[in-house]
């Protein structure tokens, strides 16, 4: 399942998890996820994912961006990721993933965002 297919399913994966939505209730904004050259804008309203827009975008506006190659996201989304592939910061440490932009909403909702981006692991198990 490539990143476009995964990101299409992301709103359902997140919104069906009431504890996760509650954890993100203070976050309402738009953030960018980049997989290689493919971009996605994730629209969040009080922890619920309203939509995921698929790029390319002409002049995208977002608060923070999380970028990695397609293959890195595939490793990250494995049902049981290998050591070093299991966390955004682990991949940031190796330089395979970057986080940039306005980091305040990212840091203030860190567990929520880590969990949102890891929800596709359940998808990969099926």
């Amino acid at each position: 399942m490539n990143s476009s297919e995964v990101m299409t399913r992301l709103p359902d994966l997140v919104n069906q998890d009431t504890a996760l939505v509650r954890r993100g209730r203070w976050l309402s904004n738009v953030f960018l996820v980049e997989a290689g050259t493919t971009q996605f804008l994730v629209h969040v309203d009080k922890g619920r994912l309203l939509s995921v827009e698929h790029g390319p975008f002409v002049m995208p506006s977002w608060s923070f961006a999380i970028r990695a190659s397609e293959s890195v996201w595939q490793r990250f989304w494995q049902p049981l990721p290998a050591p070093g592939d299991n966390d955004i910061f682990a991949l940031r440490k190796t330089g395979e993933m970057s986080v940039e932009g306005n980091l305040q909403p990212f840091m203030a909702n860190l567990i929520y965002i880590k969990q949102v981006l890891a929800t596709p692991r359940a998808l990969m198990e099926r």
Binding site: L80, P81, N86, D87, I88, F89, A90, Q104, M107, A108, L110, I111, K114
Partner: peptide, 22 residues
Amino acid sequence: HHCDVHGGEVSAGYVYGLIAPQ
């Protein structure tokens, strides 16, 4: 340790991925 971020939540967020998935 930042006035715009809850210290307890972000500290736990930082170490969240240091725990093994198993």
